[in-house]
């Protein structure tokens, strides 16, 4: 059952990811990204992370990709990129080598420490506790909340700093340059 879910969602994830890097049109890329994000959300549910699955959809699909699409449409930068042009001859082989290298590295690492993973640990503490007394309906959310506000409370507060920076930064960047006193790119050619 979980295997079936894994295969379908995994296909969504990889298919979407390939779509992002292969499709020439930014809007199509964004839609492929959504496919990947949904696949990931499904995998989260399959691994008992319901809350994260919902947040993943709300934040990523509902906000981030919408923002991408919004920028694409607002700026009208939706012409397709010609993927046949390769500015640097070495770029693609190099990318392929690096990509395969990284994937190979991690997979090798994971497989060498395989014995840590293969025997499915049905007796992990949380699961063990769950089998003895039936878990609350929203056990996952409760655990997450408790962890968030006890062990990770400092990190949680730090995210607020992060959001403040994002807001201040966007306000700073969104200001238009005053046309009256715009300085050209080369001050030497500008009438001083």
């Amino acid at each position: 059952m979980e295997l079936v879910v894994f295969i379908i969602a995994g296909a969504m994830v990889i298919g979407g990811a390939l779509g992002v890097i292969i499709r020439s049109h930014p809007v199509h890329c964004a839609l492929s990204l959504v496919l990947t994000l949904f696949g990931i959300a499904v995998l989260f549910i399959a691994q008992n992370a319901q809350f994260l699955a919902a947040v993943q959809v709300i934040v990523y699909a509902g906000a981030i990709v919408v923002l991408f699409l919004f920028v694409i449409m607002l700026l009208g930068v939706d012409q397709a990129e010609d993927l046949r042009i390769e500015p640097f001859k070495i770029q693609r082989p190099l990318a392929a080598v690096v990509g395969v290298g990284i994937v190979g590295l991690i997979i090798t690492a994971a497989i060498t420490s395989r014995n840590a993973f293969t025997p499915k640990p049905a007796v992990s503490p949380a699961v063990a506790a769950a089998t003895t007394n039936p878990p609350l309906h929203d056990e996952n959310i409760r655990q997450l909340a408790r962890d968030l506000f006890s062990d990770h409370v400092f990190a949680f507060e730090l995210t607020s700093v992060l959001l403040v920076i994002a807001v201040v930064g966007t306000v700073l960047l969104a200001r238009r340059p005053d046309r009256a006193q715009a300085v050209t790119t080369d001050a030497r050619k500008a009438p001083v």
Binding site: L162, V183, T185
Partner: peptide, 22 residues
């Protein structure tokens, strides 16, 4: 998170000169 706070602020600062394309 500290790294991201630092980096995101630096990205903004790097781009903060509105009159220079560079």
């Amino acid at each position: 998170l500290g790294l991201e706070i630092l980096s995101i602020a630096l990205y903004v600062m790097a781009a903060s000169h509105r009159k220079r394309v560079e």
